[in-house]
Design a protein around this nucleic acid. Structure first.
Lengths: 243, 243
DNA sequence: TTAAAAGCAAGAGCACTGCTCTCATTCTTG
DNA sequence: CAAGAATGAGAGCAGTGCTCTTGCTTTTAA
């Protein structure tokens, strides 16, 4: 399957990559709203109509860029997790390392960040192809907490009654190694992490937060506590896991 | 100043309002990306060029809509706060009431929500006119916590050293009635609130969270605890305020 | 009251967009 | 080698934001 069968197929994947590369350049320079198929074609020296042999519409091109962006930030998070584990860092330190890596990526690629964590551009339902890459960062966070649960246990309050069923479904579907009372706080922390980053990237913190770096570190450390990671500044509430 | 001086001025504000109304309709129907000046003009039976007498550019129209959206959600939050106070609700209940009201508004007006809390559309810097309305929700949250601090005190961990200067500036600039150790957690909770809402509105919770309502209530209750509100499920850590 | 000034609507037009055709060319395959 | 599929180029359609000029109406000042 991976063998390139002829010059035509080889050319096709090359041109496809060239289009995506040029589109990424324009995305980084001007943002998704101003990404133009004609401009991409112009820059590549081809007729605008020829692009449609590779991407059936502008939205399909954007979807491809979305997938790449998700993969990009996912890889960053996974790499940060790997090095933190290799350094035998505490679970709290791993959490902070991963979240800070995601923030750094967002600061370095604001338009790509906006593309995936801002308002959805094409329609309202994300294409099926994006949901896999979109969960990579989340799975890294799950891995950090799952490891912590196995070795140290988690400090978490008991589960609220009206959330029990949902929490059990969550832990079964998404994080099999995690007790139900850890699932909901972790999902919440996941979304709240991107609330912190979005407000910084989108300028909502303008004239509100100035020492953004330390503010972020402090906030994600507190977030670590809400997902039950020990060593996060104050003592345990009720320890679960470590079985 | 508020006297309408002639038929011309009266007509001007009427036409301006009509343009904004029609634009809001299109915004609600199709989203900001597909808002078209020509379509607005067409619907209003006027030449497209005539719109430019009222809004110098499409981005200026969008800015006007942004301000209106901020005011809309701000009013909702303030109203929820007022009724909760009138009902003599606990401070925790007020926090939950305000945050749930904001979420309800977002669910009812997803495109307007995306306009103000999604990727910034025009450029990267929000126009000066938006920063006032943009802070209304934040000020309501500040009011809730400030009231709680005055009557019950707050349960908050001590301030981290590297955050002290920033926290003191924050509380001085934004929340004079609040101790510094409350400022940073409150700003963080403010952004994290919109992280929760954004993930729900933008579809990131698809197949992840299903009981969205109870999940949100539980998450903002936990958020209330991180800003020091008492009665939020578990005991105090160190009480500040109440002086 | 009348003349000048200012505000306004309309139309034409420019440069641009996404996208769809047709037509010629090139590569692949039976 | 010939049939057929894939590709590229160009013209063209309908739409966009925005500008400019041309008349007209309302306001303001003499």
């Amino acid at each position: 399957m991976s063998t390139v069968r002829g010059a035509r197929e080889r050319a096709r994947i090359e041109v496809t990559a060239a289009i995506k590369d040029e589109a990424k350049k324009q995305l980084a320079a001007e943002g998704a709203a101003k990404l133009s198929l004609r401009a991409v074609a112009r820059e590549l020296g081809m007729a605008s109509s020829a692009i449609y042999r590779y991407f059936p519409s502008r939205d399909e091109l954007l979807t491809a860029l979305i997938v790449d962006a998700y993969d990009s930030v996912g890889e960053i998070a996974e790499a940060a997790h790997r090095t933190a584990c290799a350094d035998a860092a505490t679970h709290l330190a791993r959490w902070v390392a991963v979240t800070c890596a995601v923030r750094d990526w967002a600061l370095a690629h604001p338009h790509e960040y906006a593309l995936i964590y801002g308002s959805p551009v094409p329609g309202y339902t994300a294409p099926q192809a994006t949901i896999g890459p979109a969960s990579r960062v989340g799975f890294v966070l799950i891995a950090v907490v799952t490891d912590a649960c196995r070795t140290d246990g988690l400090a978490l309050p008991p589960l609220a009654d009206d959330l029990r069923a949902e929490a059990e479904r969550m832990s079964a579907d998404l994080a099999p190694g995690l007790p139900p009372e850890a699932a909901a706080p972790l999902i919440a922390a996941w979304s709240q992490l991107f609330g912190l980053i979005s407000f910084e990237i989108f300028g909502q913190f303008h004239r509100v937060v100035e020492a953004k770096e330390v503010f972020f570190r402090e906030a994600v450390t507190e977030l670590a506590r809400t997902v039950g990671l020990l060593g996060a500044r104050n003592g345990a509430r009720a320890t679960a896991g470590k079985g």
